[in-house]
Nucleic acid binder design. Structure first.
Ligand SMILES: [Mn+2]
Ligand SMILES: [Mn+2]
Ligand SMILES: [Zn+2]
Ligand SMILES: [Zn+2]
Lengths: 141, 141
DNA sequence: GTAAAATATGCAACTTAGTTGCAAATATTT
DNA sequence: AAATATTTGCAACTAAGTTGCATATTTTAC
């Protein structure tokens, strides 16, 4: 897929979601598509190349992408929020994220999925489940 | 269990972990025991009654409890870290936490446990798994 | 019990993540 | 091209968490 193919895809995603098609949104979508793993505001900023958006803009952009479901917050034990494209995800369950306790890298384990937890009787209604794994990555094991 | 029973227990936990038995640690352990759910530094501070510890002390106390495994960080989609006693937990998996998307309350689902995820071939070694659930609590369903 | 050694605590100052209001800029609709 | 709707940057702010250092408390050794 060429660079402009990706950009076309980003535009289509925004259009389908009825969001204004701005350079900030396109740029951030491209960064997330290329990254293929959850990124923080800071990481997104660094990867935005020549277009440097204000951090407020990045947060507000992510918020708008979140609100239409194009992006998810990933469940990670880090200080900063991490965002990723909401693909590979069902309505009820995102793929697990694995973080290496040695090198700190995080991987999306899109091949794995756990059965949904069963509600513990007393009337909890479970809508969504997120799983976080930690251990050693191939390089550190 | 009377108040002093709990305090005795806290002292024993600290002794067994070879940590100095200070009023701060005892106090924070008591708060966590009584709470029975993950609390932030701020919440712990408010619940500490007449003994008000500096927030730096609370963080450092939690760090020491973490380092000997008496306390865990719970995996929550909130801005602040949340800590809880590390009981009801196996080495490999803590109980799932459920957060109500309506009222925001969090519950420890100690009755539930999911099977451990299987490593996706390529050499990941999984040590620990955490599960977060969201949906509606009995009061909000 | 007392002194020495080891560790915890408070305070002030700092860093980093995320938010808010408002005026200027850009995107869409007409 | 103008009118309208929405986004963006900037500056100033809040909240969470950290660091250094002097003082206080806990433990150990005698
Ligand atoms: Mn992912
Ligand atoms: Mn819990
Ligand atoms: Zn690693
Ligand atoms: Zn609720």
């Amino acid at each position: 897929m060429t660079k402009s193919d990706l950009e076309m895809k980003a535009r289509e995603m925004l259009k389908a979601a009825k969001l204004y098609c701005t350079s900030g949104r396109i740029d951030i979508l491209l960064v997330l598509m290329k990254a293929g793993k959850p990124l923080s505001q800071n990481q997104i900023s660094k990867r935005s190349g020549k277009n440097r958006f204000d951090k407020v803009t990045i947060y507000r952009t992510l918020e708008s992408l979140l609100s239409v479901g194009l992006v998810h917050k990933a469940f990670m034990e880090k200080r900063a929020w991490h965002f990723e494209l909401a693909n590979h995800c069902t309505e009820r369950q995102c793929h697990p994220h694995f973080t290496c306790t040695n090198c700190g890298d995080t991987y999306c384990l899109t091949e794995i999925s756990l059965p949904m937890a069963k509600s513990p009787h007393k009337g909890f209604v479970i809508h969504r489940q997120q799983v976080r794994l930690e251990g050693l990555c191939p390089a550190c094991a």
